[in-house]
Write a protein that binds this DNA or RNA. Structure first.
Lengths: 142, 142
DNA sequence: GTTGAGATGTTGTATATACACCGAGAAGGA
DNA sequence: TCCTTCTCGGTGTATATACAACATCTCAAC
């Protein structure tokens, strides 16, 4: 085996980035498929329940929690607003986020599909699923 | 606490998708920062070492390994080719991938930065890093 | 050999993401 | 008060990603 292949193997075989991104692609597909009939995708469901959990939170603060850059937050929240699922209350330079009645209903409607995706993801990931839930708590966890 | 908040908490608190995507965003930033001085990013480094590990592999097969859709493979490999880091040998309808000398040199040049990113990611992820490496093997692993 | 089905890749379109930069508002000191 | 600086968002641009549709090549059945 030549030097290039050896070096590539050394990098590829233990790379946390390669694994994290692959897991993300895989899991996102599962949730996208499950949520598509409800006009949602993984990203939108994520943001929607985050707003539902913390109504009145600012875009800035929510972006910090979720590690999403402010420009991404701005555009993605704009889409949820265009879809009528949230409202953004403009307070000075801040945006406070609230679910609309449609947004609340959409979460309830999509919840069974989310549960199916969650189960499918758990099967795909095996024990890594437990590790991800145990060891990397998210804001809003009990 | 109202019903909407309770439901949102139930979904947000255990969602594998939310965690997988957050970890991916976080880890990608670390590697992007480290690799930027070398004209690479997380995605390109990933593909480059994958080709270095399996020279002559087809785009289709590599996409299967990495769980990357064929159209994404097509565009991303096109960029690596434009950058002079790989060549795509057109064999019938297939594309066989090889590193160029520049591509090989780029991997060697970027390796120390990759190692720094790897260490930083390990610290950020804590024991989840071990779980990801142990429990979700990638093609090319020993 | 011709044809039809399957495999492989590309292009059109949409979304998610980030960085650099800009703008508006807030906060504090001279 | 006024000016500076900081904070929060938005816009311009680039890349990563996926799905749908299409093109092209292979191969097997006939």
């Amino acid at each position: 085996m030549d030097a290039v292949r050896k070096m590539s193997r050394e990098i590829a075989s233990g790379c946390l980035m390669a694994r994290a991104r692959k897991v993300s692609r895989l899991v996102t597909l599962i949730y996208d498929d499950a949520l598509r009939p409800h006009g949602l995708n993984a990203s939108r469901m994520n943001l929607l329940v985050a707003v539902g959990l913390s109504p009145g939170i600012t875009s800035h603060k929510l972006g910090e929690y979720l590690e999403i850059e402010k420009s991404t937050m701005s555009r993605n929240m704009g889409q949820l607003e265009d879809a009528g699922l949230i409202v953004q209350e403009k307070v000075g330079r801040q945006r406070r986020l609230y679910l609309t009645p449609d947004g609340e209903a959409r979460i309830a409607e999509a919840k069974p599909s989310w549960e199916q995706a969650q189960e499918a993801a758990r099967e795909t990931l095996g024990s890594l699923a437990d590790a991800m839930l145990e060891r990397y708590p998210m804001p809003g966890d009990p």
